[in-house]
Design a protein around this nucleic acid. Sequence first.
RNA 1: CGGGAGGUAGUUCAGCCCGGUUAGAAUACCUGGUUUGGGACCAGGGGGUCGCUGGUUCGAAUCCAGUCCUCCCGACCA
Length: 508
Amino acid sequence: MSGWCGARPEASKKQIMSKAITSRAEDYSQWYNDLVLKGGLADYSAVRGCMVIKPYGYALWENMRDVLDRMFKETGHVNAYFPLFVPKSLFEAEEKNAEGFAKECAVVTHYRLKTDPQNKGKLIVDPEAKLEEELVVRPTSEAIIWNTYKGWIQSYRDLPILVNQWANVVRWEMRTRLFLRTAEFLWQEGHTAHATRDEAVAEARQMLEVYADFAENYMAVPVIKGVKSENERFAGADDTYCIEALMQDGKALQAGTSHFLGQNFAKAFDVKFSDRNNTLDYVWATSWGVTTRLIGALVMVHSDDDGLVLPPRIAPLQVVIVPIYKGPEQKAVIDTRVNELVKLLKLAGVRVKYDDNDNARPGWKFAEYELQGVPVRIAIGSRDLENNVAEVARRDTKEKKSISLDGLDKTIVSLLAEIQENLLRRATEFRDKNITPVDTWEEFVKVLDEKGGFIAAHWDGTGETEEQIKERTKATIRCIPLENKMEAGKCILTGKPSTQRVLFARAY
RNA sequence: CGGGAGGUAGUUCAGCCCGGUUAGAAUACCUGGUUUGGGACCAGGGGGUCGCUGGUUCGAAUCCAGUCCUCCCGACCA
């Protein structure tokens, strides 16, 4: 158990959290980077735009992955794995999809290196080893998967296919940002095939619900479910559903997407099936995914200037116990008492660590675990034992209380639940305070610049207007909320009639 | 690809404008001791091709040219 938390003994607190949360972009970036780097989640990689996920960060991802994986299986999906390399001819089959991703593809052109005759000890790409057909490193897997599905589907009896894969993908973005936009990232991508349009739409909507459920009930990140405007739609989709979250600096973040792909990929890869009446039709498709970006969202929604704040349900470590003692005799007494507590907590399914490392002093440990966002800290000293209590500190409010050792395991379990709830409540209040309805262009610009957050405004429904608003203000339509209230209004830019408000924001 | 900032000890940085002892600080690391309820203290110690290449100079971390890399902002995007 020791070591996996990625403690960094070299970092002093001042060195770490020099910047406070602020809406000023550069400071907020610094704050975010500090949290991710010093909180022990990730490092910058030697490879441009890629990240190294440290053990602590990976444990967090694993927890998120486990929960999601269970949810996918509960909704009837199975896992599979498809190749990393996509032959260019397959990749280009679905035109819109190919076009959309073309600008950011890493491409394998050769299969061999050789020693450089001009430069001893160095290697060059062997020009003799050029591939006949280039291989695209998958930016997403629709192409290779639909090429495979073609061989799997003949009859309605073969449908639906409900497959998910956990994988890495590569998108050569111009500008990268740890977790939020890295050249390589980890994700899951679900790819389903259906006999009817309705069934596929229902699948896409269902998975959106799964994502929203996960975001809110596990990550404690409130999200708005919606559908993307045509401009923001996934390349190759007929409809893109999304969940949108709000960060503490007032910028929005797309936290997950679920696409109704219509018959676009089936047509591109010629995937037809015979229905009950023996008529041939193209298969209906969906795809849906969430990525390691969720970790970035988690950081930016909950954390504070003392470090990460992780919701208990996915925190790699939920409880840390720090002994306070003078000499081995006191330590031995504390050990006995703590070991009982640890056993009970583990029985209750709590991820707990007893940090009795004698090399670090209590104060150092307190600060370190706060930096890592561990939801609950228990300190037990001889003084406490005399009174049959322990000092329990919660990360979300920084509140400290002496609590009886009798039944402490049960107290902790309910405290964890309370912290989980509190984080969601806090984030939801913040989010709701930052959804501002506006009716005029002047107001729109003002709110965007001074307050940020989501702006609920009328829009005439055209791509041109959306484009213009984006050019002038950098704000995009994050989504048209599902179950939106219909109301007549006028587009904030053009004054043309509109039937509902949509959510604008500046976004990551 | 455009704009900005930067690359000096494991880390964060000072020194550079105005060239000149053995290149500094904090922190981290090692040894010994005292400590342990919020990032301990004392004493001692180790650690650097100052991003790289070239130039100017008696002398370059410092000036000049080139080059590579990183971060931030913008365009692109999950």
